[in-house]
Design a protein around this nucleic acid. Structure first.
Lengths: 356, 356
DNA sequence: TCTCAGCGTTAGATCGTTCCAAAGACATTA
DNA sequence: TAATGTCTTTGGAACGATCTAACGCTGAGA
């Protein structure tokens, strides 16, 4: 009953053998009591458990790792956040991942990944010393060498971010950007909007094209034309400001942007025209950066379900570790539209429901 | 010469004993070659090193940990980022910490810390299993129980964030908020401003009072009155908007805010009056959140030197681990003012250099 | 009667490394 | 020659857990 009195007399840590002596059984039986309780006779089990509780015993992970060849550690190469990016997704993701790992008896081991191209060095080092049982990758790039490298060595891994090019390798979890912009269009259409523009990144970026595709398919589904409703800009507020002008000139009543940064450029352009985001023109961003909620009017944005991504990453990784031969699993999670003041609940002003 | 050919024939990992056999020495000698090279005769050392390189040997961390009772791991309880906070400092800090750790032969082990009051649970678990050699704490609160708890057990730790109350315990690294606001005032004074207001958080918050103090001392140093130049608001954009009004009414030509969120409230108030941040009134935020650079005009802000904080944390922790009896060391790092459009290089408009 | 599987438990070996004490080589000194 | 010392190297015992192969016993099936 007493909670961990921390074995008063003895100085060193409590070991399996000490517990065994106390319970009057062999060390192996204590081990079994913890790892395969169904092997023991109930009364023995009870006796051992009492001794474990009384002495506050905790198995030594180092010894377990040495014997079982499994560290219960998962490696994660943390990259420096590139400045200028509005959305810091890393910390939310890492917390979720860490929590999921804790619940499964695993822990996340960080190592610093240099900026730029993902290097294999850190992965090799962690593997060489048998420090980790698997990896979680993030920031997967187009010609990312990590997947193939890990797969060749038979190391379990899961990626946050799909493999866009080449033969897909391994399991991954990603956010369905298209579904997000699709949902934004749906929402705007329901409000009466029909001239819904898309402000995206230059074509050729996988993530960007994905987000554009969602807008396009939703527009098509509703029979709305997309010609002259699409513009592109690099992820910079000034550039976005300039790029959105033609869309506004063409009479768009709503703009779906591929990022919050682009949406902010949109805000700027509207202000310059004396128009107000939310009142005159609806604006939707992407990523739900902290800044979105702080803007005025607060920016509606598409939020990535990072907690779910973290949980799913861990789930897939555990599955891969328990069965390395299973077919790869891929999970695409739908982001959710966070509606704020930049998308009013009422119908748009001048001639909203007019045909495009 | 060849780089890690990954011991072609053998299947399992390369062990010390295998290297020893190859080099024609005892396992202990190989161990010495790696850990105390000066004990070996140069030619023996050379022979062993060759074998190590040829076989691509890496010592098993698990075995080392078991034997030396030092895991070379540092625990960090990652807290969920509370939504609404503009500045995500965690990921920058974590990357810096991780990098510093890597360079010192340590690694960061994450565990999920529940939101709200920091719990001891996770720390106890990691310690019980002897998984970590020490801890880095962050988000230290006023009545944070962790420092005393760890100190009592003789566990090395270092805090990111000073202990504001009670008898100070242990080493810490923190950012000198006062120095930041002081520097902001200096910069504004140099531009000709004299009516410099401070928009802070309600008194009683340690961090907030610290930032206020820097403004105050700089104002005093320049003989500028502070009466009627100070307002307070909770960290919310609307509340800040309301709170800053009296300051503007009193003719302030510049506002130093205790956070970027407060600064954004200031932007809002200025816009409502038809004034422009940067052109009419200078505004300086704090924390240099990603949003700051994206605002229009871009918000000048005081940036925390998180990379340095990470490095210093690790330095202090290593020092503590190597000498547990040394007197506690505290490091206060100066943040730096990032000047953007909200603080023009020219003198302020109407009657800037007038006496307050 | 004999074999055999199942029961709960255990002894002994093992994972890969480092600590400890002592052995061997060799030169120096009494 | 033997004793002393220094410099390298080594064997053996940990570290604390889990794996494997049994233990002695009972009861069922042939």
């Amino acid at each position: 009953m007493p909670r961990i009195p921390r074995s008063p007399a003895s100085q060193g840590p409590v070991t399996l053998a000490m517990v065994a002596r106390r319970a009057g059984v062999s060390p192996q039986t204590v081990s079994n009591a913890l790892n395969s309780p169904d092997l023991l006779r109930p009364e023995t089990l009870e006796r051992v458990r009492e001794a474990v509780d009384e002495m506050g015993y905790r198995p030594s992970r180092a010894a377990q790792t040495l014997r079982t060849r499994s560290s219960k550690l998962i490696g994660y190469g943390i990259q420096p956040s590139q400045p200028g990016t509005a959305a810091p997704i890393m910390d939310r993701f890492l917390h979720a991942l860490s929590q999921a790992a804790d619940e499964a008896g695993y822990r996340i081991l960080l190592f610093a990944s240099p900026p730029g191209e993902p290097a294999l060095e850190g992965y090799e080092e962690l593997l060489g010393q048998h420090e980790v049982d698997g990896f979680v990758l993030s920031g997967t790039a187009r010609h990312d060498p990590r997947q193939a490298w890990l797969a060749k060595r038979g190391v379990p891994f899961v990626g946050f971010g799909r493999m866009w090019s080449g033969r897909p390798v391994g399991d991954w979890v990603d956010v369905d950007g298209a579904s997000g912009t699709d949902a934004a269009v749906e929402h705007l259409v329901a409000l009466g909007h029909r001239r819904i523009a898309f402000l995206g990144w230059p074509r050729g970026s996988d993530v960007g094209d994905d987000r554009a595709a969602g807008w396009q398919r939703a527009m098509r589904r509703h029979g709305l034309p997309t010609r002259a409703r699409r513009a592109q800009s690099v992820d910079d507020i000034e550039a976005a400001h300039a790029a959105v002008e033609p869309l506004l000139d063409a009479g768009a009543t709503a703009v779906v942007a591929a990022s919050d940064t682009l949406a902010m450029g949109c805000y700027q352009a509207l202000r310059e025209r004396g128009a107000a985001p939310g009142r005159d023109i609806a604006v939707v961003g992407f990523d739900d950066s902290p800044a979105a909620a702080l803007l005025s009017p607060a920016l509606s944005s598409i939020e990535q379900p990072l907690e779910a991504v973290g949980r799913e990453c861990l789930r897939l990784l555990l599955a891969r570790m328990s069965d390395s031969g299973a077919p790869p699993e891929r999970v695409l999670l739908a982001p959710s539209l966070v509606v704020r003041d930049s998308v009013p609940g009422t119908a748009p002003g001048p001639d909203g429901p007019a045909a495009g």
